[in-house]
Structure formats: C-alpha cells, structure tokens
Amino acid sequence: MEEKPQGCGRITGAVLGEPPPEAPELSGTKTTAREERMGARVGQKAPDFNAPAYFKGGFTNVQLSNSFGKWILLCFYPGDFTFV
C-alpha cells in the first residue's frame, strides 16, 4: 500500500477493470441512472477496486486484490460521525 502525494482533487474509490466514469456535467445535476454492475454475489469473485485510505496516521492507496491470498473482511457503513 504505497504512500501517495495528496493533492486537492476529489479522489475517490474506483472499480478496476472498467473504463473511468465520464466527467460529471456541471449543470443539470440530475444524476442519470447508472447501469447496475452485476458485481457482488456469494460464490463469485469480489469486484476489485482501488481507493484512497487513511491508515494509522498516514494516507495510502489500497487495492483489494493486493490482499488476495488472505481472508478479507470488507465493511461498508453509512458515514463517519454517525451514531450506530
């Protein structure tokens, strides 16, 4: 998990193995329904991704597949500073 210089751009997680999402339009903020990627199902390969991360005082980049070979617990949650 390499340290990367932190710019000011809005960097985000990205799914690997598909073209980058098109740039969002500045006007007309209504989001068009995206095609659902048939991704996560039990018994199927976990969709690979890249994401910026905070880890023990530093910022790094995580690619899921770099941890294949180990057991992984991947937990999504609604947001920081929420109550549950």
Binding site: S67, W71, I72, L73, P78
Partner: peptide, 8 residues
C-alpha cells in the same frame, strides 16, 4: 489472519 477494510 483476516485483513479488515472499512469503506464509506
């Protein structure tokens, strides 16, 4: 031996 990642 479990690696944990949280995502939000």
């Amino acid at each position: 031996g479990v690696e944990v990642f949280s995502v939000s």
